[in-house]
């Protein structure tokens, strides 16, 4: 009987060793280790054995069973390992092939500039005010201290629809309208972005339609120093911390005093083509709101002062991205539009 058991063990182990897959292995398990297997069969002859030999044989049978079971287990784990290995090999891909594209689109560069400016001023407590693109002569000119026949109207040659209705030449009428709504009570802190129109022939630097963004702050005790400080924050945020601004006196009918504001050029003041060798780039016009404008909008100019500024996102985007032709903004060549992703 001992002999039989040992032979069974050898035979089973050889089969386990030879098993090629999990199914064969399972068959071996059923065949040898199961309740109906040959080991059980052999043990059925135990009755013939002496009382001394019975436990010995019982123990031996258990040993054989355990040895076979453990061999099966080991083999099983090896086969599983192999199967995974094979699967992995089969599934291996070329990771350098391109990924599945996800479509992305971009904001228009002008929108990017406008939103950047909007967000900066929102963080300083400003709201965004909008108004009509078709305006009355009153809001576009007269309420801004540009009565009919004022020579400075020539600076803004306009598209009229009727004698009193025109396409706005700047977003300043939104300032006048917003101030009116405040009924003489400050503070007013707004940013007015939008499309504006002037009679210009379209060329590399002129466009009959362009974008403007203006700001207005009216309150008691707003000073020119506040204007300077605010614009300095703006210039550093938009163009870089190392940039400086300078104010040059100028003239706009709706502000007094009026200034033009230059930002130091990226050449660091050495002079380059962009700044025409001056070290400075003109970026906006500004000033203290003219008392006539305050009064017309219902504010007491003795009590309130305010500053206003205005700039052209078209020009700013051109400077910022080095764009050489303003018409690109309105042609919408996709090869142009795709260049302005969100990475900065």
């Amino acid at each position: 009987m001992e002999q039989q058991l040992k032979e069974l063990q050898t035979e089973a182990l050889a089969k386990v060793e030879a098993a090629e897959d999990l199914k064969q292995l399972n068959d071996i398990r059923v065949a040898y280790v199961g309740k109906k297997g040959p080991i059980t069969e052999v043990l059925k002859g135990m009755g013939k054995l002496s009382a001394e030999e019975r436990p010995k044989m019982g123990a031996l049978a258990n040993e054989v069973r355990a040895a076979v079971a453990s061999a099966i287990e080991a083999k099983q784990s090896a086969l599983q390992q192999k199967a995974i290995q094979e699967q992995l090999e089969k599934e291996t891909i070329d990771v350098t092939l391109p990924g599945r594209p996800v479509r992305t689109g971009n904001a228009h560069p002008l929108t990017k500039v406008v939103e950047e400016i909007e967000d900066l001023f929102i963080s300083m407590g400003y709201s965004i005010a909008e108004g009509p693109e078709v305006e009355t002569d009153y809001y576009n000119f007269e309420a801004l201290n540009l009565p009919k026949g004022h020579p400075a109207r020539d600076m803004q040659d306009s598209f009229y629809i009727t004698e009193d209705i025109l396409l706005r030449t700047h977003t300043s009428p939104v300032q006048a309208r917003t101030m009116e709504k405040h009924e003489g009570r400050g503070p007013v802190k707004i940013i007015c972005p939008g499309k504006v129109y002037r009679r210009d022939n379209d060329d590399a630097t002129h466009s009959h339609q362009f974008t403007q963004i203006e700001g207005l702050a009216v309150d008691e005790n707003i000073s020119m120093g506040d204007l300077k400080g605010t614009l300095e924050v703006f210039a550093k945020k938009l163009f870089g911390e190392d940039r400086e601004i300078r104010l040059r006196p100028s003239f706009f009918p709706f502000t007094e005093p009026s200034v033009e504001v230059d930002v130091s050029c990226m050449c660091g003041g050495k002079g380059c083509r962009i700044c025409k060798e001056t070290g400075w780039i003109e970026i906006l016009g500004a000033g203290m709101v003219h008392p006539n404008v305050l009064e017309m909008a219902g504010f007491d100019s003795k009590k309130y002062t305010g500053f206003a500024f205005g700039m052209g996102p078209d020009r700013i985007a051109m400077l910022k991205y080095g764009i050489d032709d303003i018409r690109h903004f309105y042609t919408n060549d996709v090869r142009f539009l795709k260049q302005f992703s969100e990475h900065e």
């Binding site: 992305t104 971009n106 228009h108 598209f159 396409l167 309105y330 539009l337």
Partner: peptide, 12 residues
Amino acid sequence: GAGFNQAITYTL
């Protein structure tokens, strides 16, 4: 996000 690029065209 859906893959559109923004265009700005003339009003006139």
